[in-house]
Amino acid sequence: MTLGYLISLEQINQLSLTDRQREEIIAFFAARDAELERLYRFDTADTERMVHVMPIMTVVREDKAVQLFTREALQAAAPETDEGYWCVPRVLE
């Protein structure tokens, strides 16, 4: 993170930071970069790829159809409906 890049980000996000805040942010990213550098030094060529970062798995449910909501309830807050459909401004097919 450079000062020039940070200032351009400030402009996009309509922020105005003090010089002290800028220094802190640049120092924060510099520390992260140093940590990443250290991580990259590990040789992971023989490490098996993980599918997920945590050893957790989903629960599954039985395949049983239950209708818990009515159309009327779900469409109560809709800006516009017609013959049971939700309506949106026309889109091209």
């Binding site: 395949d63 049983k64 159809a65 239950v66 209708q67 909501f69 779900l74 049971g84």
Partner: peptide
Amino acid sequence: ATDSKIFCSCSAGSYGTEPNMHVCPACC
């Protein structure tokens, strides 16, 4: 050919039914 949808319990058999009968906050 399941009875219910993949991520919610609404019926998956929608062929020939009225619009928006098999819906819930999840699949909406």
